[in-house]
Amino acid sequence: MKVYSLKAEQFVNASIQECWAFFSNPRNLQKITPTDMGFEITDFDEKSMYAGQIIQYKVSPLFGIKLSWMTVITVVKEESYFVDEQRFGPYTLWHHKHFFEEKDNGVLMTDLIHYALPLGFLGRIMNALIVKNKLKSIFNYRTIKVDELFNTK
Protein backbone atom coordinates (compact mmCIF):
# COMPACT_ATOMS: atom_id res chain seq x y z
CA MET A 1 0.00 0.00 0.00
CA LYS A 2 1.38 3.38 -1.05
CA VAL A 3 0.90 6.08 1.61
CA TYR A 4 0.89 9.73 0.54
CA SER A 5 1.20 12.85 2.63
CA LEU A 6 0.05 16.42 2.36
CA LYS A 7 1.08 19.32 4.56
CA ALA A 8 -0.69 22.68 4.71
CA GLU A 9 0.18 25.66 6.88
CA GLN A 10 -1.67 28.92 7.40
CA PHE A 11 -1.34 31.83 9.76
CA VAL A 12 -4.64 32.73 11.40
CA ASN A 13 -5.13 36.24 12.77
CA ALA A 14 -6.97 35.15 15.90
CA SER A 15 -6.31 34.10 19.46
CA ILE A 16 -5.63 30.45 20.17
CA GLN A 17 -9.02 30.30 21.90
CA GLU A 18 -10.89 31.70 18.86
CA CYS A 19 -8.97 29.47 16.49
CA TRP A 20 -9.57 26.35 18.57
CA ALA A 21 -13.26 27.13 19.03
CA PHE A 22 -13.76 27.42 15.28
CA PHE A 23 -11.64 24.52 13.97
CA SER A 24 -12.53 22.01 16.68
CA ASN A 25 -16.25 22.42 15.89
CA PRO A 26 -17.20 19.99 13.09
CA ARG A 27 -20.14 22.23 12.13
CA ASN A 28 -17.65 24.80 10.82
CA LEU A 29 -16.07 22.37 8.38
CA GLN A 30 -18.79 23.05 5.84
CA LYS A 31 -17.88 26.78 5.89
CA ILE A 32 -14.36 26.04 4.67
CA THR A 33 -15.11 23.17 2.25
CA PRO A 34 -15.75 23.82 -1.45
CA THR A 35 -19.48 23.75 -2.23
CA ASP A 36 -18.91 21.37 -5.15
CA MET A 37 -17.90 18.72 -2.59
CA GLY A 38 -21.53 18.46 -1.46
CA PHE A 39 -20.30 18.22 2.14
CA GLU A 40 -23.05 17.36 4.62
CA ILE A 41 -22.78 16.15 8.22
CA THR A 42 -25.27 13.29 8.66
CA ASP A 43 -24.52 12.27 12.26
CA PHE A 44 -22.80 14.24 15.02
CA ASP A 45 -23.56 14.31 18.75
CA GLU A 46 -23.23 18.13 18.96
CA LYS A 47 -20.80 17.86 21.89
CA SER A 48 -17.48 19.63 22.17
CA MET A 49 -14.70 17.66 20.54
CA TYR A 50 -13.45 14.66 22.50
CA ALA A 51 -11.40 11.53 21.80
CA GLY A 52 -13.72 8.81 20.55
CA GLN A 53 -16.20 11.19 18.95
CA ILE A 54 -17.73 9.86 15.71
CA ILE A 55 -18.75 12.19 12.90
CA GLN A 56 -20.46 10.96 9.73
CA TYR A 57 -20.61 12.88 6.46
CA LYS A 58 -21.75 12.65 2.89
CA VAL A 59 -19.33 14.06 0.32
CA SER A 60 -19.23 14.18 -3.46
CA PRO A 61 -15.52 14.48 -4.25
CA LEU A 62 -15.71 13.37 -7.89
CA PHE A 63 -18.34 13.49 -10.61
CA GLY A 64 -21.14 14.29 -8.12
CA ILE A 65 -21.06 10.75 -6.72
CA LYS A 66 -22.20 10.80 -3.06
CA LEU A 67 -20.00 8.85 -0.67
CA SER A 68 -20.42 8.14 3.03
CA TRP A 69 -17.50 9.01 5.27
CA MET A 70 -17.13 8.25 8.98
CA THR A 71 -14.31 9.77 10.99
CA VAL A 72 -13.33 9.29 14.60
CA ILE A 73 -11.55 11.91 16.65
CA THR A 74 -8.76 9.82 18.15
CA VAL A 75 -6.70 12.38 20.08
CA VAL A 76 -7.48 15.82 21.48
CA LYS A 77 -5.15 18.17 23.32
CA GLU A 78 -7.17 21.32 23.99
CA GLU A 79 -5.90 24.39 22.11
CA SER A 80 -2.94 22.43 20.76
CA TYR A 81 -3.94 19.63 18.35
CA PHE A 82 -6.43 16.98 17.42
CA VAL A 83 -6.42 13.96 15.13
CA ASP A 84 -9.21 12.57 12.99
CA GLU A 85 -9.08 9.18 11.31
CA GLN A 86 -11.39 7.68 8.74
CA ARG A 87 -13.16 4.51 9.82
CA PHE A 88 -15.28 4.13 6.66
CA GLY A 89 -15.03 6.09 3.45
CA PRO A 90 -13.21 6.60 0.18
CA TYR A 91 -9.67 6.07 1.48
CA THR A 92 -7.88 2.94 2.61
CA LEU A 93 -6.13 5.18 5.15
CA TRP A 94 -6.92 8.73 6.26
CA HIS A 95 -5.03 10.16 9.24
CA HIS A 96 -5.32 13.94 9.67
CA LYS A 97 -3.42 15.85 12.35
CA HIS A 98 -4.46 19.45 13.07
CA PHE A 99 -1.86 21.50 14.98
CA PHE A 100 -2.37 24.97 16.48
CA GLU A 101 0.69 26.92 17.61
CA GLU A 102 0.28 30.27 19.32
CA LYS A 103 2.46 32.96 17.76
CA ASP A 104 2.74 36.73 18.14
CA ASN A 105 -0.51 38.19 16.80
CA GLY A 106 -2.13 34.87 15.95
CA VAL A 107 -1.89 31.15 15.43
CA LEU A 108 0.08 29.01 13.01
CA MET A 109 -2.25 26.23 11.92
CA THR A 110 -0.63 23.13 10.40
CA ASP A 111 -2.42 20.18 8.85
CA LEU A 112 -0.56 16.96 8.19
CA ILE A 113 -2.45 14.28 6.32
CA HIS A 114 -1.39 10.73 5.53
CA TYR A 115 -3.66 8.87 3.15
CA ALA A 116 -3.78 5.78 0.98
CA LEU A 117 -6.15 4.77 -1.78
CA PRO A 118 -7.70 1.40 -2.57
CA LEU A 119 -7.19 -0.54 -5.80
CA GLY A 120 -3.38 -0.82 -5.77
CA PHE A 121 -1.93 0.33 -9.10
CA LEU A 122 -5.22 1.94 -10.15
CA GLY A 123 -5.28 3.88 -6.87
CA ARG A 124 -1.75 5.16 -7.57
CA ILE A 125 -2.87 6.32 -11.01
CA MET A 126 -5.97 7.98 -9.52
CA ASN A 127 -3.78 9.79 -6.99
CA ALA A 128 -1.42 11.08 -9.67
CA LEU A 129 -4.20 12.18 -12.02
CA ILE A 130 -6.97 13.33 -9.66
CA VAL A 131 -6.82 12.84 -5.89
CA LYS A 132 -3.57 14.67 -5.09
CA ASN A 133 -4.69 17.74 -7.04
CA LYS A 134 -8.21 17.59 -5.60
CA LEU A 135 -6.83 17.59 -2.04
CA LYS A 136 -4.54 20.53 -2.87
CA SER A 137 -7.50 22.45 -4.32
CA ILE A 138 -9.59 21.75 -1.21
CA PHE A 139 -6.84 23.15 1.02
CA ASN A 140 -6.32 26.13 -1.32
CA TYR A 141 -10.03 26.86 -1.04
CA ARG A 142 -9.82 26.53 2.73
CA THR A 143 -6.92 29.02 2.81
CA ILE A 144 -9.06 31.58 0.99
CA LYS A 145 -12.05 31.01 3.28
CA VAL A 146 -9.97 31.18 6.47
CA ASP A 147 -8.40 34.41 5.21
CA GLU A 148 -11.91 35.81 4.63
CA LEU A 149 -13.05 34.74 8.11
CA PHE A 150 -10.00 35.70 10.16
CA ASN A 151 -7.35 37.55 8.20
CA THR A 152 -9.20 40.49 6.66
CA LYS A 153 -10.10 42.25 9.89
Rank of each mutant, 00 (worst) to 15 (best):
82 F>Q: 00
13 N>C: 06
98 H>S: 11
128 A>T: 15
85 E>F: 01
56 Q>I: 06
92 T>R: 15
114 H>Y: 10
45 D>T: 00
33 T>W: 02
148 E>N: 14
134 K>D: 10
72 V>N: 14
133 N>C: 04
150 F>H: 02
4 Y>S: 10
144 I>Q: 13
84 D>W: 00
25 N>P: 01
27 R>E: 13
131 V>R: 01
138 I>M: 10
84 D>E: 08
47 K>Q: 15
19 C>E: 04
110 T>S: 13
25 N>V: 03
71 T>E: 09
142 R>I: 06
78 E>Q: 15
47 K>S: 13
6 L>H: 13
38 G>Y: 01
24 S>V: 04
14 A>F: 02
32 I>K: 07
115 Y>V: 05
32 I>C: 04
62 L>C: 09
119 L>A: 13
69 W>M: 02
129 L>D: 08
130 I>W: 10
84 D>H: 04
87 R>H: 08
100 F>H: 10
83 V>F: 01
32 I>E: 06
134 K>L: 14
142 R>C: 05
11 F>Y: 07
139 F>E: 06
17 Q>C: 02
125 I>M: 11
107 V>T: 04
17 Q>H: 12
149 L>N: 08
119 L>H: 08
12 V>C: 02
83 V>M: 01
24 S>N: 08
59 V>W: 05
99 F>W: 12
153 K>L: 13
71 T>P: 07
128 A>H: 15
4 Y>F: 14
87 R>F: 03
10 Q>F: 05
138 I>A: 06
20 W>V: 09
133 N>W: 12
97 K>G: 01
123 G>I: 01
80 S>G: 07
8 A>D: 09
129 L>G: 06
69 W>I: 04
18 E>A: 09
94 W>P: 04
22 F>P: 00
133 N>T: 11
1 M>H: 10
20 W>P: 00
38 G>W: 00
104 D>N: 15
113 I>M: 04
9 E>D: 10
138 I>N: 09
36 D>T: 10
139 F>P: 02
121 F>P: 07
8 A>P: 00
57 Y>S: 00
152 T>Y: 07
109 M>R: 00
54 I>T: 10
96 H>R: 06
146 V>C: 08
107 V>H: 01
40 E>G: 07
74 T>P: 01
85 E>P: 00
56 Q>R: 15
12 V>T: 02
116 A>K: 07
15 S>H: 03
63 F>D: 11
124 R>E: 15
126 M>N: 10
140 N>I: 06
